[in-house]
């Protein structure tokens, strides 16, 4: 909007200058140097007035852009701090869920192992019995052990059922963290849009006032030297990139090409 206004003003500004210049030329052709010099003063006034008007308009637009950026989006109690807290909550939930799941697996594993080991051991003795290789007192012990095993297994497998369903319940974090992450992502997009708006406004101030900036050296992503100080980057989201391995097989191929 501000840009369109400025363009209108610019063409008005240009037309006024052209009128004055043509007038000046006429005066000069008619030999009236005094009048021509007076017109130079008028020219100066028009330039100053236009410049002040435009600076005023830009200042208002810039002020609006800064207001939209919302200073309260940074610092204590701000949206950004709020988002940081939300991400900490995601970390806490996922940590809790991972540990709860592993606790349950740790508790369930011995139960499953017990069922397996005792069933395997009893089955050996049961086969002996079927082959009529068991002595009567061995058979009595076997029936006692089988009875005990059936009772224990009933208890163990009931516990296992409970643990398995608790493991499923421990995955409920996905829903909660998903909602939080969506919100934080929306905030990041919003702040980015407001920043872009501010940069656009600042660019207009530059073009109207004719300010040029010394070239700011571009901040280059640090190119690590060969094998030196190569930085950790965390998980690669885009696995299709050429310089990223897509799987453990790729890692193995790469290492074996290096003589591993």
């Amino acid at each position: 909007m501000a840009g369109m206004n400025l363009d209108n003003e610019n063409s008005k500004f240009g037309a006024e200058i052209r009128d004055l210049a043509e007038n000046m030329l006429q005066q000069l052709e008619q030999g009236d140097v005094g009048k021509a010099v007076a017109l130079v003063n008028d020219l100066n006034q028009i330039r100053d007035r236009t410049l002040y008007d435009e600076i005023g308009r830009l200042t208002r637009a810039l002020h609006e852009a800064i207001k939209n950026l919302r200073v309260d989006s940074v610092g204590a109690g701000s949206e950004i701090e709020n988002a940081t807290d939300k991400l900490a909550y995601v970390l806490e939930l996922t940590d809790k869920s991972a540990n709860r799941t592993m606790d349950l697996v740790d508790a369930a594993t011995p139960l499953a192992t017990d069922i397996h080991d005792r069933a395997a051991e009893l089955s050996v003795r049961w086969k002996k019995f079927l082959n009529k290789e068991l002595k009567p007192d061995e058979f009595r012990t076997l029936t006692k052990d089988i009875n005990q095993f059936l009772g224990d297994s009933t208890d163990n497998s009931r516990q296992l059922q409970g643990q398995l369903s608790d493991i499923v319940l421990a995955q409920d974090f996905q829903d909660l963290t998903g909602q939080v992450i969506h919100k934080v992502a929306a905030l990041v997009r919003d702040v980015e849009a407001r920043l872009v708006n501010l940069v656009v406004m600042a660019g207009k101030v530059d073009s109207i006032t004719g300010i040029t900036h010394a070239d700011i050296p571009e901040v280059k992503a640090e190119e690590p030297k060969e094998g030196e100080n190569i930085a950790a980057e965390g998980p690669q989201i885009d696995k299709s990139s050429e310089d990223v391995v897509a799987s453990q097989d790729d890692v193995d191929d790469l290492l074996s090409s290096l003589g591993f």
Binding site: G234, P235, Q236, D243, V244, V245, V251, L255, L258
Partner: peptide, 12 residues
């Protein structure tokens, strides 16, 4: 989680 070829080469 570091999965860039450069990184794997550096580790090697």
């Amino acid at each position: 989680a570091e999965a860039k070829r450069d990184q794997i080469v550096a580790a090697a």
